[in-house]
Amino acid sequence: MKKIRFIAPIVILMIFALTAGGCGSSGGDNKTAEKYPTKPINYVIAFNAGGQSDIEARRQQPVLEKTLGQPITISYKPGGGGAVAWAELVNQKPDGYYMAGFNIPHIILQPLERKDSGYKTDQINPVAIFQKTIVGLAVPKNSPYNTLEDFINAAKAKPGSITIGGSGTNTGPHLYTLLLEKEAGIKLQYVPFTGAAPATQALLGGHTVAMAGNSDDLVKYPDKIKVLGMASPERFKALPDAPTMKEQGYDIQVSVDRGVAVPPGTDPAIVKQLEEAFMKIANDETIKAQMLKEGFEPVAMNAEQSRKYIEERTKVFTEIFNSLGQTQK
């Protein structure tokens, strides 16, 4: 019993500390943005730990902490191709302490194709867009196709017999395939994989003829694959030898853009502060160089530009989506 008497005050203290901590970290109703941030900020990753979004957030974390003066807590809410995290994001309190990474075209295509995605594209309140990957067409080094033209001719000769792998359904690579089919008037067999790694594996193993992949994956295998066409307006800096689709007469532009967003209705002053912190990273020369080397195109779009970009892309994608006859399931 003696022991217990000794422990009791400590326990009571702990209850106080814990409950007080619990309330304190949540009680901050919309205070003025001047004092923001006064507590750690949650940065939610919509994909698994160790994925590209995670790595990017981990790179930003120390810089954000320095600029904002508060710890940044990174946590993961993977599932549904990101949809679960975004559905959660739009229902959070707009106090500036909850932000989530987002991807285009995911946030546009998911609400288009699913009834229950849990959020609408215009509810995603962007702070900044900081990087993009370009979708490109790749074949193995030993493939008989050396140019986009070879590939398209082969597909014309035997419609539907050429397999093209990519990560997921209604994703950047899938969209690219659909557009290529439409522009070139060919029929391909798209095979969706559960991610970029299995799609690459199937390509290298010769199980699929070609792959629509993101530039960060395409740069990883310079001695194993040939890149036949990048869906960007200009040549991609990390792959200077790969021609663009446009150069070869097909006006196809598909990229996957990454940014960060806060719940709708967040105080513009808070958005401004976060935006500045992210812009600082986006304009950092060392980080930009790192990104390029890893196969990303660094971009620096602020909140306003990001919003306009999302609106513009939504229009484009909705049109493509409808014209290709993909309807909501």
């Binding site: 702990m14 309330c23 807590t73």
Partner: peptide
Amino acid sequence: LITGAFYSVFHYIFLVPLPVGMLFG
């Protein structure tokens, strides 16, 4: 003691944001 110990481990070391409950916002 047990709740406190595990809360600390998860919250401070593994940085898992545990739910605070609707009553506390």
